[in-house]
Nucleic acid binder design. Sequence first.
DNA 1: AAAACGATCTACT
DNA 2: GTAGATCGTTTTG
Length: 194
Amino acid sequence: MHFNDSPVVIAQRLVGQLLCRRTRDGLCIGRIVETEAYLSEGDTAAHSTRGPNRKNACMFGPAGRAYIYTIHARQCVNVVTERQGIGSAVLIRAVEPLTGVPLMQRRRGTIHLRNLCRGPARLCEAFQIGRDLDGWDLTRGKRLWIADESCDLSANVVCSPRIGVTSAEDLPLRFFVNRSGFVSGTRKQTSIHH
DNA sequence: AAAACGATCTACT
DNA sequence: GTAGATCGTTTTG
């Protein structure tokens, strides 16, 4: 999968894909169930809206890199979209835990599956995604990457059975598109179902 | 230097 | 459903 496309398109395409993370502690995989697009133009909620700076620089980098930011003393992960110089990205809002559940539970300090990876900061804690991965190339299949759901992971992965949808509202697969005619992060406006 | 803010989370009702 | 916590960054005096 390539990410050099509009964040709206990528936000839709990412839903259903696998977020993969390998550390010395083990492998974690989650199915992406909720995303949100941040546009390069006319989107005042996007961190790129006031141009590049030290913190958001990765947003203006090549597509397929990670943009990680801190908020409320927590981390959130985005997939950078569009060509270098364009500041757009897709926030990963929730994943369904598939592999490495005990490790996630340890990191999160809870055993409750529903709360493991529901929310952009929660999933980062479960996957141990920190600022050290800001700018990481997500297409290289190391440490942190996105895998197509159809790809064969059986070589080194044994996926647990489906646990059930863990998105915030327990809805089927969905994505959010930020402002500019679509939806904001509050979840109180119209959402687009997939 | 102090205050306000935020693409959030937890605990509690 | 919402108050309170959290802390780095930005804004204000």
